[in-house]
Computed example of a mutant assay.
Amino acid sequence: MSALDGLSPGVERLLEGSGWSRDRRVSIGAWDAILRGEGYRLSPCAEEILRGLGGLRVRPVGTGPYTHDLLFEPELAGSGAYDIAEQFEEQFGQRFYPIAEWISNACVFLGDAGKVVSYDDIERLDIADTFADALDIILLGVREPRVID
């Protein structure tokens, strides 16, 4: 099953409006080379998501304090934050890779088992256990993410 399967119709519409299609593929080698040099390891799930969504900026339709554009730029989001990824790894038992920037330069990380979390200078968020659920929360505002510190 693809990491991009199971997206809700509302999320698919937002992604398509931002330039995404099921056959979209972008090169992620430059991003990964830099991030790999910092210690990150690209999982197959993160690779698939970034090949399909890399470079896109998606504007959410939800409302509330977590309503911000989601920018799929892993280097911008995660460069210099490998120590945070290691802390999430210790907490959740999976390796994390940066996939997007969100909320005032927050880094959205994807775990190799599918967990989606976020970090910025103010708080850490447990967004969802799957990428599809995370997009429902981030882009549609179906609920607020759980603050974990």
Score class of each variant (00 low, 15 high):
Tyr40Ser: 05
Gly64Asn: 11
Phe96Cys: 06
Arg95Glu: 11
Leu70Met: 14
Arg51Ile: 07
Ala113Ile: 09
Ile127Tyr: 00
Pro74Val: 06
Gly55Met: 10
Val61Arg: 14
Trp31Arg: 01
Leu42Asp: 00
Ser2Met: 06
Asp83Leu: 08
Glu75Lys: 09
Leu4Asn: 04
Gly6Ile: 00
Pro145Ile: 04
Ile49Val: 15
Glu12Asn: 08
Asp129Phe: 02
Leu53Arg: 08
Ser104Glu: 15
Asn105Ala: 15
Gly37Met: 08
Asp133Leu: 03
Gly52Cys: 13
Cys107Phe: 05
Ala134Asn: 03
Leu7Glu: 12
Ala3Gly: 06
Phe109Ala: 04
Ala30Asn: 10
Glu47Gln: 15
Leu53Ile: 09
Arg25Leu: 15
Gly78Cys: 07
Ile122Trp: 05
Val116Thr: 07
Glu48Arg: 05
Leu14Tyr: 04
Gly114Ile: 04
Ala30Arg: 12
Glu12Thr: 10
Asp83Pro: 04
Ile103Phe: 11
Glu89Trp: 00
Gly111His: 00
Asn105Cys: 14
Trp102Lys: 08
Phe72Val: 06
Gly39His: 02
Ile103Gln: 11
Asp23Thr: 13
Ala106Ser: 10
Thr67Leu: 13
Asp129Glu: 07
Arg57Cys: 11
Leu140Pro: 11
Glu123Val: 11
Asp133Cys: 04
Val116His: 00
Leu56Thr: 05
Ser104Asp: 14
Val61Tyr: 06
Cys45Phe: 07
Val117Leu: 01
Leu110Lys: 00
Arg24Cys: 09
Val142Pro: 06
Leu50Gln: 10
Ile148Val: 15
Gly111Ala: 03
Val142Ala: 06
Gly93Phe: 12
Ala113Glu: 15
Met1Glu: 10
Leu135Gly: 09
Arg57Pro: 07
Ala30Phe: 09
Phe92Gly: 03
Ser118Arg: 05
Leu4Arg: 02
Glu73Asp: 13
Phe96Asp: 07
Glu73Ile: 02
Trp20Gln: 02
Ala30His: 09
Phe131Ile: 06
Pro9Trp: 07
Tyr82Trp: 12
Ile99Gln: 01
Phe96Val: 01
Pro9Lys: 08
Leu71Gln: 10
Pro44Leu: 14
Asp5Cys: 06
Ala3Val: 01
Ala113Arg: 15
Lys115Gly: 07
Asp112Phe: 03
Pro9Asn: 09
Arg24Ile: 07
Glu144Pro: 15
Val117Trp: 02
Gly141Ile: 08
Gly111Met: 04
Asp136His: 01
Ala113Ser: 14
Pro74Cys: 08
Ala33Asn: 07
Leu53Gly: 09
Leu135Ile: 09
Val142Arg: 06
Ala46Ile: 05
Tyr119Ile: 02
Ala3Asp: 01
Gly10Leu: 13
His68Pro: 06
Leu35Gly: 01
Asp32Trp: 13
Ile127Pro: 01
Ser8Ile: 05
Tyr97Thr: 00
Ser118Met: 09
Ile28Gly: 03
Gly19Leu: 11
Glu75Thr: 12
Ala134His: 05
Phe96Leu: 08
Ile34Leu: 11
Glu47Phe: 09
Ser18Gly: 02
Tyr40Met: 05
Val58Met: 13
Phe72Trp: 10
Asp32Glu: 14
Gly52Asp: 13
Gly54Met: 10
Arg143Gln: 09
Ser43Trp: 09
Pro9Ile: 04
Glu123Arg: 12
Ala134Tyr: 03
Leu140Ile: 14
Pro74Lys: 06
